[in-house]
Design a protein around this nucleic acid. Structure first.
Lengths: 194, 194
DNA sequence: TTGCCACTTGAGCGATCACTCAAGTTGCCC
DNA sequence: GGGCAACTTGAGTGATCGCTCAAGTGGCAA
């Protein structure tokens, strides 16, 4: 009996698995099990393991970016929007996330051998993310919420690093209250940058 | 012709390779090439790939800890010692480091599937590291360098996360000056915590 | 109903994985 | 020099890797 598969659903399932296990530790057998697709179908749909991984990274980044944009328009100010995003996007606040670590951060730290295409894709996505952070900080500067001599790019860099640090700690710490406090500290810091 | 091997040297070479490539992406063939040892000798000396990895993590942590202790006794104050450690220990300042990322941070973010022994070892080493950070902060509090109501454990947590964030960013950023600035910002922050 | 085509299937490809062990080599003691 | 324990060697183990493709299946137009 043949079973028809939804490429979109399968990609989500692959995303979760890659997120949880990492690229190198996830075999096609694992992906087969998770998606219910047989190897032939997987390759017809996605081309290769590496391409599927890149697609999953892209999808994750797109979703994160969409959430950020949505919170931005609802927020009272650019910095409030960013703070809301940090509070809401952090995987601990997302019950569906397989790990309390940003997928992109985990992927960055684990990728190293071989596949240049994956590294390029990751670099692209992270650079893009930094750029949107910087744009928001610039808006805050223009709106007078931050001193005129603030460096938007530097603030974006710092936020990016702070979020990564948060991810690292969240993966280790089992006490949710501790992480919650760290998230709050970071959002507070973003709201009243100086 | 048989070649006698130095277990200590081989462990260092394995450390570098694991650091660069990650555990899952490093094969025994890679380790064979790097150490010059044949599989039989590797197994006689280290038992298994996982045990070799654990040993390399331990060695790295021990070295880092020794460096921290050494800088501590030389420094004018506990916080100065910690700041010196951050400045000096960061892989960008260490020409021998294969990557500008703390080995333990990278290992934490990449480990996920299977081997419980590795995760336990990592958790141990990181917890130990946090504890020494906390102890130093406590010394600073006792010495009056920090307000009496400071939370040493929280400060240690924050520093641990900040260092991880730094690692993440250092892996992406190609401009050494940018990283240098981030390191300086962090050391300054440690020196005058409040 | 028939013929066609797009999609699914899964056995199986060569390569590589972590790991073993019998055979070979070495160095030391007597 | 002979004997032996300790170490090194690397071909080989079965399992699994990412991936292919000929055969099978289902849906639709005529």
């Amino acid at each position: 009996m043949n079973v028809s598969h939804d490429k979109d659903v399968a990609l989500d399932q692959a995303l979760d698995l890659f997120w949880k296990q990492g690229y190198a530790s996830t075999s096609l057998k694992d992906l087969e099990r998770a998606t219910g697709m047989h190897p032939g179908s997987l390759y017809a749909a996605f081309g290769s393991k590496a391409k599927l991984y890149c697609l999953s990274l892209e999808r994750y980044a797109t979703r994160l970016s969409a959430l950020r944009a949505e919170l931005q328009v609802q927020a009272a100010s650019p910095l409030d929007g960013l703070a809301d995003f940090i509070a809401k996007a952090h995987p601990l606040s997302d019950a569906d996330a397989p790990l309390p670590v940003c997928y992109l951060v985990k992927a960055t730290l684990e990728t190293s051998k071989g596949n240049q295409a994956i590294e390029d894709k990751l670099s692209d996505l992270l650079t893009q993310n930094d750029a949107t952070f910087a744009a928001v900080f610039q808006q805050a500067i223009d709106a007078g919420d931050l001193p005129a001599n603030s460096d938007a790019k530097k603030l974006a860099r710092q936020l990016s690093a702070d979020l990564a640090g948060l991810c690292f700690y969240a993966l280790r710490e089992t006490d949710a209250a501790v992480i919650k406090e760290m998230v709050t500290d970071l959002t507070d810091q973003v709201r009243r940058r100086h």
